[in-house]
């Protein structure tokens, strides 16, 4: 394994789940729970002739950022597209529940210092959603994760991190939307139905999945940032993600609550407003919306580096 300092400088996009987990917490602080040596493999895959993995495609564990315990869930897209089944789904839920317990204990043992010691959950999504080989268990895991999110509301932040090759799609697109904070690099993508499926269902004229530029400006981080879905757009290094997470770790919960996109009547109204806007203006391309929000030359935005983009971009203003 690379040294931590090297990891911080290396590409998040190219990193595997374990490298990301280690690099998003303080140097030397990450302890893996249910790691490869525990051999918690899927019981469903062998009978279907599908290869297994000792960690079932998910790295879970706990590390620190300063005094904050960081509960990490990191998905591995190379293993069955990062899809969620029974074991990795269980690991995901268990890790969030562990964070919730830690929060309760810190609240009890250090009531004066809760803000400084408040735990957080960081989920590095790289998944297409439910693992079809074990779909019922996978779906159940989605529901349980959402439930656990609700129980953490106002107590500790749930941070969604998206910047890996597969992106975050399917049911996990909903899950990502239900977190408190979303951090992405330029290569990150979030959506519900994957581009290939849209093309298959609606035809190539509607959505050409081989047109990657189109795919990225529809589901990619720059679009999510302009629309206000993505709260932090960062450079593609593990260290940049670490910095953004550290920034959230110290924010008051009330401020974190403002970063959410769903979860209150006001936010639902805001989302309905967007639906109406899209209905009225009938955009043909994400660029039409970028222009609507004041970007004079929307076609130039995809070409800009993250730093240049952040300097010039005009985003939807949230109340």
């Amino acid at each position: 394994m690379q040294k931590w300092d090297e990891l911080e400088k290396s590409s998040f996009l190219d990193a595997n789940a374990r490298q990301r987990a280690i690099g998003m917490t303080d140097k030397g602080s990450f302890t893996e729970l249910l790691g490869p040596r525990d051999r918690f493999t899927s019981p469903h895959l062998p009978v279907l002739g599908t290869a297994v993995e000792f960690d079932d495609g998910m790295v879970t564990g706990v590390g620190r950022i300063g005094k904050h315990p960081v509960f990490v869930i990191s998905m591995e897209g190379k293993f069955i597209g990062g899809a969620i089944g029974e074991v990795n789904g269980g690991k995901m839920v268990g890790t969030i529940r562990l964070a919730e317990k830690a929060a309760a204990r810190i609240q009890k043992e250090h009531p004066d210092e809760y803000a400084a010691r408040r735990p957080l959950v960081v989920i590095s999504f790289e998944t297409g959603g439910v693992r079809l080989h074990e779909a019922n268990a996978g779906l159940l895991a989605h529901a349980e994760v959402m439930d656990a999110f609700q129980d953490c509301r106002h107590k500790l932040p749930i941070i969604c991190v998206v910047g890996s090759k597969v992106g975050c799609f399917g049911g996990m697109g909903f899950v990502a939307a239900a977190t408190d904070v979303i951090i992405m690099n330029e290569q990150g993508r979030i959506g519900l139905t994957g581009p290939e499926v849209i093309e298959q269902e609606m035809g190539k004229e509607e959505f050409d999945a081989s047109n990657k530029a189109l795919v990225y400006r529809t589901t990619g981080a720059k679009q999510k940032y302009i629309m206000g879905d993505c709260n932090y757009l960062v450079e593609d290094t593990i260290g940049s993600f670490y910095q953004a997470i550290a920034d959230v770790a110290d924010k008051p919960m009330a401020e974190i609550e403002k970063l959410r996109r769903i979860g209150s009547v006001k936010l639902v109204e805001e989302q309905m407003g967007l639906v109406k806007l899209v209905g009225d203006m009938q955009p043909k391309d994400a660029m039409d919306l970028w222009k609507y929000y004041g970007n004079e030359k929307p076609e130039e935005l995809p070409e800009l580096s993250t730093a240049e983009f952040l300097k010039v971009v005009k985003c939807r203003v949230r109340n």
């Binding site: 490869p36 993995e53 000792f54 293993f79």
Partner: peptide
Amino acid sequence: VTGSGDLEVL
């Protein structure tokens, strides 16, 4: 990682 065309070693 047990990715397509790849393997994990313990």
